[in-house]
Every structure is written in structure tokens, then in C-alpha cells.
Design a protein around this nucleic acid. Structure first.
Lengths: 358, 358
DNA sequence: ACGGTCCCGTAAACCGGTTTGCTAAACCGC
DNA sequence: GCGGTTTAGCAAACCGGTTTACGGGACCGT
């Protein structure tokens, strides 16, 4: 009859081996402080007792948790089903594991991000999509724990990672312009807080600037009513495109700010009987893994999703704010256009089709 | 000049408020043990000092970590980019949050799952894809911490969650048989350990039995060389289908054991110039969110991915092995076929070749 | 005035490790 | 044989909370 016997503690091992607790601790962590045979004797006894140091006690004593946190304003349920996050997290996980660190997701607990931050015990934080002026970031900043901001603006001397959104967007729009397109619909990512604040730092604003710069250079304007927003998901993309269409917009090309939305637009277009790219060109953003498997394969703006995650870990492990001065705290990755099958020259008799609406 | 001042501890608060540490603890955890105004006085002082209890210290003292672990033999990088895991984890996250629990992923650390298990500090474990005879499961069983096995076989009295793989597979194959198909290729999920052991408990074996039962009922056999295997990903599906094709197989229908692989097969078929479903029917398994957005939308076997995660949390929180006896420890969910656009009646000229019996 | 309950609050043990002196013995060169 | 340096191991403080056992005072009925 075996019952859940209490797990052996360091004191049990010490007693059984006839040494002090300190000796047991040394045997595992600093074996060179002990004679070789004491070490092996202690280890044998420990193995016999199936002893394993309690991670929590160790964390408390060392004041290190060997964990880095990924902080996001979205719920875990959306995080885990969002491929963009997935690829980013995969990058974080890779680098974290290499450094012997675990990762923990910090996301709103019962609706409160602050509460979640309080409950989290981490050695460093990677905050994605949270601006430097966000209250929780202030809370973290005061606490002194290293952190890095990803995909948002940071204070000038704080570590951050972002990509060249404007450049990437510019490249996407230029590509379409060169193919002869002049009528665009932009599908943007709506801010997490439904506030009507047109935050100029928000990713949507940055990319929009890039789109517009390229359009303007070709002498065409992208009006505000040609910009529709939604959550960065397939459903969001479907809904957004339908909204644009129902609103009477008849673009020859769609600029989507995320691949997920682009795929949604692809789907919506098909439902409306449009062929991509013959009748409609679509450009995404992110270059998710799936982008190469859609039908047609998606033309999109690549950003290094996994790499961003890995670099974030590196920065936060370097101590965040007080890292080596030689290394720039702010790391910006380049973006570039990947042309696949979802874009083509503007359809010739497009105008006729457009006018027959019923 | 603000510098990272040491975070206030419970002792600091106690001193500042002129009370004992115990009182401070009570003020937050058991306020009814104190007079109302002492509570508010302590809370005010605490707020002034920006005090927040150290989660690690609390874990040690309470011997609870408020965390449940998700144990998998795959690396985090594959987990996070695998939609099946994503949906399952989303379910876990939902239920965990509702119960005030955090979740932690436990996956091989420097190649060793055992090491990862040692380092993890959790109140319960959800093991997915790990058989009851797996050494790490033994380790956990001995440790006495509650656990539940998902998607694999468990000892008869241990909590586990699975789905009716055989029934679902049977339904999928029957559907194809009814459409007139007689020549199949099965795309299976290869076991994590590349061992040549044809474990009869492995999910691939279970589903294969279902497929075969339905085929046999129609008088057709699915030979071993019509079964190709690969990792459960799009790439895996593409490679598997190509391998089958290159091996001379010319099926009218494909039975894929995961939607990801089915999508890969879809892609591979298109590359080979086959139209789906006109030339080739494909049935997946899982019913991922994306299955409804592929082109054509995927016919597949639904299993309740998120629900499984939620139920797993419930079981493990009920104490795992020593739960209420009235509730079955083993929970099996039903599966059922969802017919969409990737299946159709067998193509005519192909039918002649095969159909010597109707 | 007296013993018995409550009510508030405290002191101290405890959770299970790590880490900092410190000491006793062994080793050293001379 | 002696001071000085290593070496091996120990005792105790510490990390920052929780929880149990207890005590003093107010309130109560008699």
C-alpha cells in the first residue's frame, strides 16, 4: 500500500547522510567546495531518497525565479490561437530555453492586468503591444525588474524592439502602385482598448503612414473612409472586407495589416465571387508560416517574428535598462516585401464590373 | 534621482503600521479576524509603501503555487505554432483563469523532460500525449501531485481525457465509402519517439482501426503501404502525400489524421494538378478553426479541442486521483463528422477502374 | 466581585532551500 | 616545532511570507 509519502527535503538528506544542510546544498550547486567523496556520498543518499530540491524554496532563497514573463493585454485564449503570437512566442521559448529560463504568460486576470502582474514572479518581462505610457508598464518600471517593449513605442532610453512598419507598408503599397492599382482599401488592426483615440504611435498609424506615403507619391490618396478596422484575425478580416464592400467600396487592391486579416479578406473576396489576384490583389503583413500555403500564396511584408522573440529574451537577460552601453537598447528589424501569388496587375475592365451594383 | 529601491516587505509594512507581521497578513487574507479599522489602517499603510506580497514567498508558505502545468514531449517552439495545441491550451487557459490559476508549459529542457518536470512548480499536471507507462508519468505519480492524461491511454483508475477516435475515424471513412470511394490513402501521425514500435494505444493506431473497420464493412482493405506517416503539420502533410504519390498510389480519397496534415495534402494535391474535391476527396481530423476557411472548406472529424482543455483543468483541480467517486475519472468525448467542401462523389472515370462490384 | 466567552492582536514556528562567516584539522615551507 | 595558508564542513542567519497557539482586555450574566 503505497501512499503519497512526503517528498524528501534537504534536511532529510542531510540527516541520512550525516552531514549538514549546507553540505547537501553544496554537493549539488558548488561541488568543488566539498571533497569528492563526500559529494558522491551525498548524491547517492539523495538519489536513494529520490530527493529533488523544491524549486519554490530555491527561488525564494536565491531571489531568482528563472522565469521570464510575456506580458500582453489580450486574454490567453486569443494569444494561443493567434499564429502571430505563436511564432513570436516560439522565438521567445527557443532563446529562453537556451538560457535555462522558463516562460510565463502574464495576461489579464479576471479582467485586470495589474493584478496579473502582481501575481507573476518573473526575473524579466517582455511586454508586447503595450506602450511606454501604459500604467502597468509604469508599475513594472518602478519595481526595477528588467523589461523590454515589443511592437510599440518606448521611452528613448528604454530597451525596445520593433520593426520598420512604415518602410514595410511603403513597400507593399509601392508594389501595388507599380502593378497599376489606384483604388485601395486598407484593413487595419483596431486598438485593444476601443477608445476612439487615434494614437499616432499605434501600429495601425505607423503602417498607414507608409501606405499613404507610397500612394501619395503616385498621386493617389487613401481616404479615411477607405480604411476599415477590426481585430487581427481571419474573422476580423472577413468582417472588415464585407463592411468595406457593403459600404460601396470597390477597390482593385487590399492592403491588410496582418496576414490573418489578409486571409480573411481572401475568403470574403471569394464569397463575393472575386478572383484573387485576377480581380483583386491582396497584400498582407507579417509573413506568417501559413502565408505560403494559402490559395493563392500570399504576397506579404515579412517581419522576423521568431527572431523578434529571441532578441527580446536577449535584451531582457542583458538586464534591460542597464545593459552594456555599446549595444543599442532599441532594436529595429528591417521588413521586406515577399511577392507571391495574391497580387497581379490591375484588371483592365475593372471599372465596368464595379458600376453594376444592385 | 530615483533608484530601484528594494521592494517593501511585509515586515516593513508591519513596522510602519505599528503592528505585527501576522496582522498584515490577516489584513489581506483574513480581514474578518481583525477589527475593521485596523484592517483599513494597515491597508492604507501598505498602499502608501506600494507593498505587494511576494508571490514566491507566499507559494512556499502555503505550499501551493496556484499554477497548473501542461506537460508535453514536444518542444515549446512546435507547441506554440501548432493550432491543435493552441486551441487545447486556450481551453485550459480559460478554465484555469476562472479558477484563479496560472498555467505553465512543461516541455523538454535541454532535451530532458525529466529535468523540466523537476524544475516545474505546479499544483497539478495535464499531460498530453504521454502514455501511462511513460517514465515521467511514473515520476509524477510517485510525487503524489494530481494529474490527468490527455489523448493517450491511462491506467484504468487514473483520470484521463480522450475522444472517440475510433468512432470518428469510422464516420470519416464511412462517409467516403458512401460517396463511392474505394481507393484510400491514410496520412497518419508519427509517434514522437521514432521507435518502430507499433504501439496499439497510439492515436494513429486507434484511428486506423476506425478507418479500417468502415472500409472492411464495404469490402475494401486499406493495406499498410497505403498508410504514410509524418509529423502533424502542414509540411508533414505535404511531404506525406507526395511520398504516397511518388510511391505510385493513386487514391480517390485521403484520410488524414489531423487537419494540419489534411491542409498540407490539399496543397500537395493542388501542386500535382488535382482538383479537390472533383478529382480527390480529403477528410481531416480535429476540426480546427481554420478548417472552415480553407479552399475548399475542409470536411473533417470534430473533436472538442477547447472543451477538452477545460475539462482537464476541472479534473486536475478536483484532485486528480482522489476525486469524487461519483464522477468518472475517465472522460471520453464524442466525435462527429462535419461535412464541408473537400469531399464529393468519386470521379467517374476513376470509378470504373475500381468499381467492379456495384 | 467572579468566572466564562469573545474579540483583537502578537510571538514564534514554519515552509525548504542558499549563503555567510567561522572553526578545526590538514598541509606547508623553513 | 611553528606561524601561515588551505581545505572541508558546520551553524545559523536569511529569503518573505503564513499559520498556530496563546494572552490580555472588554463584555457578560449572576
Amino acid at each position: 500500500m503505497e501512499q503519497a509519502t512526503r517528498r524528501a527535503t534537504i534536511a532529510d538528506v542531510a540527516r541520512a547522510a550525516g552531514v549538514s544542510k549546507a553540505a547537501v546544498s553544496f554537493a549539488f550547486n558548488t561541488p568543488e567546495r566539498l571533497s569528492a567523496d563526500t559529494v558522491s556520498r551525498i548524491r547517492d543518499v539523495a538519489a536513494g531518497l529520490d530527493y529533488r530540491p523544491d524549486p519554490v524554496a530555491r527561488m525564494l532563497a536565491q531571489r531568482r525565479t528563472w522565469t521570464i514573463g510575456i506580458l500582453t493585454p489580450q486574454g490567453l485564449d486569443v494569444i494561443f490561437t493567434n499564429p502571430y503570437f505563436g511564432e513570436f512566442s516560439a522565438g521567445v521559448a527557443t532563446a529562453a530555453e537556451a538560457a535555462g529560463m522558463a516562460i510565463q504568460f502574464i495576461s489579464p486576470l479576471h479582467g485586470s492586468l495589474a493584478r496579473a502582474v502582481d501575481r507573476a514572479s518573473v526575473d524579466g518581462i517582455i511586454a508586447v503591444g503595450l506602450g511606454a505610457d501604459h500604467p502597468e508598464i509604469g508599475q513594472i518600471r518602478r519595481s526595477g525588474i528588467p523589461f523590454v517593449l515589443v511592437d510599440s513605442t518606448a521611452l528613448p532610453d528604454e530597451p525596445a524592439i520593433h520593426v520598420d512598419d512604415e518602410g514595410g507598408a511603403h513597400a507593399a503599397a509601392s508594389h501595388l502602385v507599380e502593378l497599376g492599382h489606384r483604388t485601395f482599401v486598407v484593413i487595419g488592426i483596431e486598438p485593444p482598448s476601443a477608445g476612439a483615440s487615434p494614437d499616432p504611435a499605434w501600429v495601425t498609424s505607423r503602417r498607414l503612414r507608409g501606405y499613404r506615403a507610397a500612394a501619395t507619391a503616385a498621386g493617389v490618396a487613401i481616404h479615411d473612409d477607405a480604411v476599415v478596422m477590426g481585430p487581427a484575425s481571419m474573422e476580423g478580416g472577413i468582417a472588415a472586407f464585407h463592411r468595406a464592400w457593403d459600404g460601396g467600396l470597390r477597390p482593385t487592391a487590399v492592403l491588410a495589416m496582418s496576414d490573418a486579416m489578409a486571409i480573411g479578406a481572401l475568403r470574403a473576396a471569394r464569397e463575393l465571387g472575386l478572383r484573387v489576384p485576377a480581380d483583386l490583389s491582396i497584400v498582407g503583413f507579417d509573413d506568417l508560416d501559413v502565408a505560403q500555403y494559402t490559395d493563392p500564396p500570399l504576397t506579404t511584408v515579412r517581419q522576423p517574428n521568431r527572431l523578434k522573440g529571441e532578441e527580446a529574451v536577449r535584451l531582457v537577460l542583458d538586464g534591460g535598462r542597464k545593459r552594456n552601453r555599446l549595444e543599442p537598447a532599441q532594436h529595429q528589424f528591417a521588413t521586406h516585401l515577399v511577392v507571391r501569388g495574391s497580387t497581379a496587375v490591375v484588371p483592365r475592365q475593372r471599372q465596368e464590373v464595379v458600376d453594376d451594383r444592385s
